[in-house]
Design a protein around this nucleic acid. Structure first.
Lengths: 218, 218
DNA sequence: TAATATTTTTAGCTTAGTCTAAAAATAAGG
DNA sequence: CCTTATTTTTAGACTAAGCTAAAAATATTA
């Protein structure tokens, strides 16, 4: 079993590995976790003992497959709880992170299985991030900004970049939410504005909107 | 803010106060918490500093009103989560304790408010124990065994003592669950058996059944 | 490539919460 | 009411996880 602190280190290293794809430096971990490099060194040595990551002095660390699986499971729980908080308890997308940060450490295999079922086996959390499956595998799909899409491309809304109340209300009014299918009907060169199709409606959106909406294209 | 360990001490002391109604001894706490008396002394002195309980050497402890409120809030969360686990995730009554023991420490006022609402403001947990309100007040209702009821008394089923699969199935078959109203129509002296009314049905139950069913009489 | 800057590690200290062993206070029994 | 038993507290040590300050390794740059 891994302590709360250990799980948080594994999670941070997991995310840093994706971002820089490759070894993760001591300082990068300290930064991310808002702690001191010396503390990181200690913990990383302990985790290396437990064989959830490999570590060579001054060379950075890499998760082992087992470490990666543990981290992915914590992230799975975090994201499932976020779905719960938003879908069932009607929290807003931007209010749930701190609570999920606590809930992700609850230990019970069965709880995760049942929560997942209760939520209808969601693939994405309310921010559009993919939820790893029980084996720690992530559906690596291209998540990109709507503004990066070309004419005639189709995508599914999977999240937002900004999540201010105004923006969410804007989306609400146009019936855009997680899972909404969007097609780009036209795109203007000079200002980046677009005409898109949502359901049976077609409408104009500015570049600013398109730059804050994530879509998943397949 | 109180640490996980502190919250657990407050909760244990709260329960012990009810049971022995009065001061709680160091050994009693150690027993309940599965720890050593010396550890209890340390913690109790720390909590006395924080003014959540009063403590005189060798004399035992008593929660202060503020300590009692904190404890009741932890218990409130524990029981709300138990309702969630049983009602929404379909766990059995006897599987939920360990998970709720973890969930009770999640810190978020708003979460509790919303969870409570989501569950329909329940008054009792799946074991029939009352859920303290947000101010820490508990509906102090007489919870007693059905076997202790007299002829013509009415009560609402609020829990079970034993919770084996067989027993739960027995209750299920007779449509008895939390909230079910029961009236004692007759009681036999020599074997403690009863005739009871449940909805429109009347039937016979043995002493053993009556001794494992908690009812709330008003 | 030598000097300087940056990163990382080590050494030693701190706090929370626990433990054991021994001392002190209280309770019980003859 | 004195002796013994029980309960409680104290003293000192341990572990996990963090910190600071200094030393060591690596990177950068003139």
């Amino acid at each position: 079993m891994f302590s709360l602190a250990e799980e948080n280190y594994l999670k941070a290293i997991y995310h840093l590995e994706q971002e820089h794809n490759g070894e993760v430096s001591t300082n990068a971990i300290a930064d991310r976790m808002d702690t001191k490099p010396s503390s990181v060194t200690d913990m990383v040595q302990k985790l290396a003992e437990k064989e959830v990551l490999s570590y060579k002095k001054y060379k950075g660390t890499l998760l082992t497959p087992s470490g990666r699986k543990i981290a992915a499971n914590v992230i799975r729980k975090h994201r499932l709880w976020e779905v719960f908080l938003v879908e069932k308890l009607n929290f807003h997308w931007d209010e749930v992170h701190d609570i999920a940060e606590q809930l992700e450490h609850i230990q019970s295999e069965e709880l995760v299985v049942r929560l997942d079922k209760f939520l209808g086996h969601p693939d994405f959390d309310p921010h559009g991030d993919p939820i790893p499956d029980k084996h720690g595998n992530v559906k690596r799909t291209e998540k990109k900004l709507l503004s990066e899409c070309e004419k005639n491309q189709r995508g599914v809304c999977v999240g937002v970049k900004e999540s201010s109340g105004e923006f969410l209300q804007y989306l609400d009014k146009r019936k855009i939410s997680i899972g909404t299918k969007i097609k780009v009907l036209g795109k203007e060169f000079f200002d980046g504005s677009m005409i898109i199709q949502v359901g049976n409606d077609q409408f104009f959106i500015s570049k600013k909107i398109a730059e804050n909406l994530y879509v998943q294209t397949n």
